[in-house]
Design a protein around this nucleic acid. Structure first.
Lengths: 188, 188
DNA sequence: GTCTATAACGAGATAGAC
DNA sequence: GTCTATCTCGTTATAGAC
């Protein structure tokens, strides 16, 4: 891993833990093992770093979604795998980077906002596909469009992660995920 | 309104817009019309201010919930009124103070965490009551306990507010609320 | 590409006069 | 209860040597 990737990895973790405005170049520099002035060679401004973080995070998500889509399983298992991504984040006491950036949205450089919107679109579009797949496999029963159910799922998972991480109540998170899946699963 | 209340009102709005760590005593002082040193007379430290903010926000919510509970309407209308609280927040480009504090949770003074947990409990307990009421009125069909559905509703509303405020997509927020309510509403 | 050094600013907090 | 003045520290960012 080269220095630029190392910086991005460290900064990503810091955003997910503290938020975009609550860590400094000094924090990154210490963990990467270089001086903070050197960071500006790779990312001239913090806004530039933020844009790059959103890009790489969306790319990481896309890789995960492609991996899940390629699994030789039905749609219900794919949805479970997607929810597991949030569960893993909670176990690491990390918020989703997109959700964290969203909470900071009013203070972010405007250059970061398109990348943020793109991240949420990536999630809902993939979810809508999996929901439609599950519907045609007679696994899911949807009471509205797949796109609407995708929006509800993403919002509920982001919210559940947000709350559970703050309260430390992992059981509540698991119950929310369970009920979300159950509520669209065909009975019997 | 005395000075202390004025400070709390201004600080609350700033938290809901920017987060607890992204505004300063200088911001409050300017809007209240006093010097920032004077703020320390009312709230010696920012953590003290944070604890007070959570207390007053929970008290405000409690007043709203009591008002809604006292309305001469059925449970479905009460649930609608609750969702409208989030809708109003979105229109003001404000996050829920609890949700915002939750995103900052790893950086908050530990004295603030019990008040934060209490805020979420207040929401879910009231929601569970209204859901149980609606079930006995044959308005709602629940596939799990009222408490579980309450958790899903709160998480989804917090998440929907978080995302919609960042993307500017108010229509998506409305569709999420509509589907959440529809999914527990008895058909016919 | 990394370094030392520093600029320029804003943060929370305190002392002490009025 | 509010003020002026100040302290100490941390922030992003830049200049210029190596």
């Amino acid at each position: 891993m080269d220095t630029k990737e190392h910086i991005l990895a460290v900064a990503q973790k810091l955003v997910q833990q503290r938020g975009f405005n609550d860590f400094s170049y000094a924090d990154i520099a210490e963990e990467v093992g270089i001086r903070k002035a050197s960071l500006h060679h790779h990312f001239a401004t913090k806004a530039e770093l933020g844009v790059a973080l959103l890009e790489t995070y969306s790319a990481q998500l896309n890789n995960e979604l492609l991996r899940i889509s390629a699994l030789p399983v039905k749609a219900d298992a794919k949805l479970n795998a997607y929810c597991s991504l949030f569960q893993s984040s909670l176990q690491a006491k990390c918020m989703c980077l997109g959700g964290m950036m969203a909470s900071d949205s009013l203070t972010l450089d405007k250059a970061m906002l398109p990348g943020l919107k793109h991240f949420f679109d990536l999630n809902t579009e993939w979810l809508a596909e999996v929901l439609a797949e599950g519907k045609s496999q007679k696994l899911f029963v949807l009471t509205s469009t797949a796109a609407d159910h995708a929006r509800v799922l993403l919002a509920a998972l982001e919210g559940a992660l947000l709350i559970a991480r703050a309260t430390g109540d992992h059981e509540t998170f698991d119950r929310i995920v369970w009920l979300l899946i159950k509520s669209i699963t065909r009975k019997g």
